[in-house]
Amino acid sequence: MFEEGFGWKAVAMGYGCGFVFGVSIGYVVFRARKPAWFVKMVEDSAHQNAKRLRRKNAPRNGGRRY
């Protein structure tokens, strides 16, 4: 039995337990308060994406190029 390695049932149980544990911990952390590092990361990435889209669409829409 041990020569075969992990079967798909063991792998599925591990993924399932990890998923439930991760969702539970994430819920507790975000319910308690918003982590400043996460909010900053999301806002920075949204700002960068908006900046990139403005830059990409500017010449086609007659806007200035930055």
Score class of each variant (00 low, 15 high):
L53N: 08
V23N: 01
F38E: 06
G22Y: 13
L53P: 01
G16A: 14
P35E: 01
K56V: 08
F30C: 07
S45M: 06
P35I: 06
F30P: 03
N57P: 00
F6L: 15
M13R: 07
R60E: 13
F38P: 00
F30K: 04
A46M: 06
E4W: 04
C17K: 10
R31Q: 09
R55D: 15
V11F: 11
Y66T: 10
R60A: 14
A50Y: 03
G26A: 08
F38H: 07
G14Q: 06
A32M: 05
G26K: 01
V29A: 06
K9L: 13
V11A: 09
H47Q: 04
Y66I: 08
E3W: 12
N61D: 13
H47C: 00
R33Y: 06
G16P: 02
A10D: 09
F30N: 11
M41H: 07
V42D: 01
Y27G: 14
K40E: 07
R60S: 10
H47D: 04
V20G: 01
W8I: 15
N57G: 01
Q48H: 09
W37E: 08
G22N: 11
K34D: 10
F19D: 01
G63M: 05
V39T: 11
V42Y: 02
E43P: 00
S45I: 00
R33L: 01
P35A: 01
A10M: 09
K34V: 12
F21P: 00
G5K: 04
A50P: 00
G63L: 08
F2C: 07
A50C: 03
V23Y: 03
R60F: 14
V20L: 14
A36K: 15
N61M: 11
R65M: 11
F2K: 12
K40P: 00
M41K: 13
G18Y: 05
R31A: 13
M1E: 14
R54G: 09
N49E: 06
P35S: 02
L53I: 15
G7I: 10
E3L: 14
E3D: 15
K56I: 10
E43L: 02
G62D: 03
K9Q: 14
D44P: 00
S24F: 10
P59N: 04
G16M: 10
M13F: 10
R65F: 05
E3C: 11
M1W: 13
K51L: 12
D44A: 08
W37C: 03
G62I: 02
E43M: 03
D44G: 00
G7D: 15
A58W: 07
C17T: 13
F6D: 05
G62V: 03
G62P: 04
